[in-house]
Write a protein that binds this DNA or RNA. Structure first.
Length: 569
RNA sequence: CGGGGUGUAGCGCAGCCUGGUAGCGCAACUGCUUUGGGAGCAGUAGGUCACAGGUUCAAAUCCUGUCACCCCGACCA
């Protein structure tokens, strides 16, 4: 491809509403253009990258024996009524009405459609196991789209669904998909980590997320270096450490007029933060006898909303009580709450249950108790894991101490079980002639998000540094002053022909731009291999070779083709 | 949805307070010069100042409403 025949429109200035590097670079390179909030056009340049990612995903899915298909993106509401997700999926589901007044959704995912397909197609265990997948545009009406295609409303996703006659078979296939995903991200040249995860709205028991590691990632991951332990912080089990010491202090009521937060309490009263307890009041579920329930975590710990929501007594979604509600139920403000004589039920974190001689609010404004001990001063309530793990915590599998890193979720695999086959009554005959609901797995990859995540992980001040498997062009040829120098132009043309014949995707910059512009654009769009053809080098029989993100060197003219095909094989 | 902010040329912004011919930089187009790190000079083109109403002789500017977009929180590939 020659730039004169391509649509290359780069920008020097950073667009105002792009916050993170990948979004800025995708706009500056012209890979994407925003149509409206969370909805983007992929330009020819961007599409080249998107297609490369898609192709790697497709090849590996095919290699794993999965079958590609294409389902409709517009789906009738009846299907979603069957599983109850017409309501449960919430406002993220983009709904629309046809001329006859029938309701539809633009598909955010395809469990319903594939299960409808399966109940028509699959009759016998002999057809199982089977895995169907598609690569398709999805729409989720995100509450807050941001970061360009990283969290867009319309996005390209690979979604796959497998059907099995037994949990055993599902488990084995799940492992195949786990390995397939690992191979996909390895092939794409990305640094990634697979973590155990919460399965969220999709449902199911076993679930792993695949994260591209980047400091700008929205997810926090807990892992133990050198061990296989890795979990999303949302889900990582927090293990209590140590044993409860015997009381050594008497409980005493202390005036704390200016301490409304743990930080103030610690600072003003010379109390180690590990000896304080935070009391959070949240709405209780209908199962609970009270309207509100208290959740207690150590002063330096954070409540984990995902864990809390799963407790039967806690309302889901989690809702913090307002100050007014707290005053009405407890008679003190949020800065002065604690377990002693608390009028509502409470659940304490595992670590809190092991504390002794600790400080907490007295449920009276401006007063705290210090030297509190369980059993002696307050009955120990129900104990549960309700906090986020922190760096240094022991991992739940005993493999060592947790480190926290950031990641961008680009893949998620689930063992769904029979949630959909049951609610939609998909059945197959087993070997005993009995009808059975097949057990299902579901496997997603955010194809468009991978493009952004790859940039997030691979860029510098000058632009993108593509991993070779997803670069829009393998090689750029920059003829300096080609319009003036015959030999420069001719050699550049010769390289262009030879390298294309050798199967490389070559971009030749024939714009007659000044050298600086050509260098800057080649670097901005991140082409991994750059050949600089100029009179200066030709006098010595060489051309300059630049490796994006690496070293520059000189190549004798006659070795260029061999060198590049070797680099790119 | 709650809280905050912004809408003026393709992009980045000024002008608004104090109403009176709509501006700057980048990008684009033409010509000449220049050519190993985003060139110089000269010229050209491009705007219902988000939209609707109001105040006024006169509104980008003041008032009211609407819409869109962005940022902070809960959701997710």
């Amino acid at each position: 491809m020659k730039t004169s025949q391509f649509h290359l429109v780069t920008q020097r200035e950073v667009p105002n509403d792009a916050e993170i590097a990948s979004h800025q670079l995708m706009l500056r390179t012209g890979m994407i253009r925003k149509l409206t909030s969370g909805i983007y056009t992929w330009t020819p340049l961007g599409l080249k990258v998107l297609r490369k990612v898609e192709q790697v995903v497709r090849e590996e899915m095919d290699a794993a024996g999965c079958l590609e298909m294409l389902m409709p993106s517009v789906q009738p509401s009846e299907l979603w009524q069957e599983t109850g997700r017409w309501e449960d999926f919430g406002a993220q589901l983009l709904k629309m009405t046809d001329r006859a007044g029938r309701e539809f959704a633009f598909g955010p995912t395809h469990e319903e459609v594939i299960t409808e397909f399966a109940r028509g197609e699959l009759r016998s265990y002999k057809q199982l196991p089977v895995c169907f997948y598609q690569i398709q545009t999805k729409f989720r009406d995100e509450i807050r789209p941001r970061f360009g295609v990283m969290r867009a409303r319309e996005f390209l996703m690979k979604d796959g669904y497998s059907f099995h006659i037994s949990e055993d078979c599902l488990g084995r296939f799940y492992q195949v998909m786990f390995d397939t995903y690992s191979r996909i991200f390895e092939r794409l040249g990305l640094k990634f980590k697979a973590v155990t995860a919460d399965s969220g709205a999709i449902g199911g028991a076993v679930s792993h997320e695949f994260h591209v590691l980047a400091d700008s990632g929205e997810d926090l991951l807990a892992h133990v270096p050198g061990s296989s332990y890795a979990a999303n912080v949302e889900q990582a089990e927090a293990v209590a450490q140590g044993e409860r010491a015997a009381p050594t202090e008497a409980m005493r009521l202390v005036d704390t007029p200016n301490a409304h937060t743990i930080a103030e309490l610690v600072e003003q009263h010379n109390l180690p933060i590990e000896k304080t307890v935070k009391t959070l009041i949240v709405a209780a579920s209908e199962d609970c006898e009270a309207d509100f329930i208290a959740l207690l975590v150590r002063g330096d710990h954070e409540l984990n909303a995902v864990k809390a929501e799963k407790l039967p007594q806690v309302a889901s979604p989690l809702r913090m009580a307002t100050e007014e509600e707290i005053r009405k139920t407890i008679g003190a403000g949020p800065g002065s709450l604690g377990p002693v004589e608390l009028p509502i039920p409470a659940i304490v974190d595992r670590q809190v249950a092991l504390m002794s001689d600790f400080g907490a609010g007295a449920n009276v404004d401006h007063k705290h108790y210090f030297g509190i001990n369980w059993e002696r001063d307050a009955a120990l309530p129900e104990v549960a894991d309700i906090r986020n793990v922190v760096a240094g915590d022991a991992a739940a599998d005993g493999s060592g101490n947790i480190e926290l890193i950031r990641g961008i979720e680009v893949g998620h695999i689930f063992q769904l079980g029979t949630k959909y086959s049951q609610s939609m009554n998909a059945v197959v005959m087993d070997e005993n002639g009995r009808a059975q609901h097949p057990t299902m797995g579901c496997y997603g990859i955010g194809v468009s998000r991978i493009v952004a995540a790859a940039i997030e992980q691979n860029h510098d001040d000058n632009g993108i540094i593509w991993p070779e498997p997803m670069t829009p062009f393998d090689v750029a040829i920059l003829p300096l002053n080609g319009h003036k120098s015959h030999r420069v132009r001719e050699l550049a043309e010769r390289f262009y022909r030879e390298l294309r014949t050798a199967g490389l995707d070559v971009l030749m910059d024939d714009r007659n731009q000044r050298p600086g512009v050509m260098f800057a654009d080649a670097e901005l769009i991140g082409i991994p291999h750059v050949l600089v053809v100029g009179d200066r080098g030709l006098d010595n029989g060489v051309v300059e070779y630049r490796r994006r993100g690496g070293e520059n060197s000189e190549l004798p003219i006659e070795q260029v083709r061999e060198f590049l095909t070797g680099q790119l094989s």
